[in-house]
């Protein structure tokens, strides 16, 4: 059962129980990012963050592409640039985000996918950061999120050459976590989403927080953060339920408390 919550023009937001799904919805324009989409993604992210019932989010594209990048674009001020930066909205979602990459993710389209936590791609998808080929620099986090994900060497090769790679190469360099045949994308995504939805919400949120914040810290600081959040989890009912269910050899029932 899908419950539509907001009326958007450039994206589709649907929810079913703990699962939300954002689909980029400009299929005839290759799901290219424009300022309306940027604005609507920000609204969708805000809505999801405030909606306690949503536990996990899927990000995908309608039609053949995930997203082919940007529309004909020009910006001259920081304010204008902000209207063309969409990936931050995805990164601000506090719940796990699974990108179901249903087709090509190019340029800003790839930058959107990089802001998700888990990437599953169809075998026919292509990936690239061709911005330098157009004489410009990626402006939606690509120069920062790409090296943090695939390492400096692969990131520099993609950024400097602007080369477009296929899904198996993307898998090899760690850009995506799983590659499946197109007809299996939904099942593979559902499987990841179900796994996430069955865990304890607070622990899940903290896991994302420790990894993301820890990457910006020294190892020592990161270990302290991890320890502190562990201690904080001691106060949750879900942790007690997890331990109880293990002892009683039954699946846990988490309440998010």
């Amino acid at each position: 059962m899908t419950e539509s919550s907001h009326i958007f023009k450039t994206i589709l937001l649907s929810r079913a129980g703990p699962k939300a799904r954002i689909a980029l919805n400009r299929p005839r324009a290759g799901n290219r990012v424009n300022p309306s989409m940027t604005e609507e993604l920000a609204q969708a992210a805000e809505f999801i963050n405030q909606d306690d019932s949503t536990r996990v989010v899927t990000l995908t594209g309608q039609g053949q592409s995930f997203s082919s990048g940007w529309e004909r674009i020009r910006f001259d001020s920081a304010e204008e640039l902000a209207r063309h930066r969409a990936a931050g909205a995805i990164a601000r979602i506090q719940k796990p985000v699974v990108a179901a990459i249903n087709g090509d993710a190019i340029g800003q389209g790839l930058e959107l996918a990089l802001a998700a936590d888990i990437r599953i791609a169809v075998a026919t998808a292509h990936f690239g950061m061709p911005q330098v080929r157009f004489g410009v620099l990626p402006w939606d986090g690509g120069t920062q999120r790409l090296p943090r994900l695939v390492g400096r060497a692969h990131a520099l090769a993609l950024l400097l050459t602007g080369a477009v790679i296929d899904a198996s190469e993307a898998l090899r360099i760690g850009l995506v976590h799983q590659v499946v045949e197109p007809q299996q994308l939904e099942a593979a995504t559902d499987s990841a989403v179900e796994q996430i939805a069955s865990t304890a919400p607070v622990a899940e949120r903290y896991a994302k927080e420790t990894v993301m914040k820890g990457m910006d810290m020294t190892l020592e600081q990161g270990l302290h953060l991890e320890a502190d959040l562990n201690i904080l989890l001691h106060t949750t009912g879900d942790r007690a339920e997890g331990i109880r269910s293990f002892r009683e050899r039954r699946p846990p029932k988490f309440s998010g408390q």
């Binding site: 910006f75 001259d76 920081a78 640039l81 930066r85 410009v136 620099l137 990626p138 402006w139």
Partner: peptide, 9 residues
């Protein structure tokens, strides 16, 4: 990145 992209544009 935002500063540099803006300069380039």
């Amino acid at each position: 990145e935002a500063r540099m992209a803006l300069d380039i544009f």
